[in-house]
Amino acid sequence: MEMKGERRIPAPRQLVWERLNDPETLKGCIPGCESIEKISDTEFTAKVVARVGPVKASFSGKVTLSDLDPPSGYTISGEGTGGVAGFAKGSATVALEEDGAETVLRYGAQGQVGGKLAQIGSRLIDATARKMADEFFTRFVGAMSPESATGS
């Protein structure tokens, strides 16, 4: 499925761009992310625990940044395997636009799951992917708020 969204961030575009490439920021924004390790400037390994209601599955996999167009945007992709639960992957194309001192972030995201999660929980795939994307960008905006932008 496809999801679209838009966020207004009270921070300059260059700073937003830098944070979008910062593993620590990403760790704080990816829902359930327990660890993230940098392999290269555009590749990270990550461990993510996904909790959806009674389901709790631990995914390990990697996060890749591609289509880099600093400071206007990129594509962030993640994929991981969650053992018996199956696997999940998702990506979001992020575009940053300057608007005075602020930045408008637009994203188009998509997600897929496979294995038992798809077989048993297909009714929840859409809502869960939407929630994860929404949470990621909401947290990211939170991380960019004036106090956290300067304070971290």
């Binding site: 209601g53 009674p54 389901v55 709790k56 599955a57 018996v84 639960a85 999660l117 048993i120």
Partner: peptide, 21 residues
């Protein structure tokens, strides 16, 4: 730790190994 009340959602989830409390 997980609470179980009636268990009508939790136990099927556990049977499918989709959680490991």
């Amino acid at each position: 730790a997980k609470l179980v009340a009636g268990g009508m959602t939790l136990i099927p989830t556990l049977k499918l190994r989709l959680a490991k409390p």
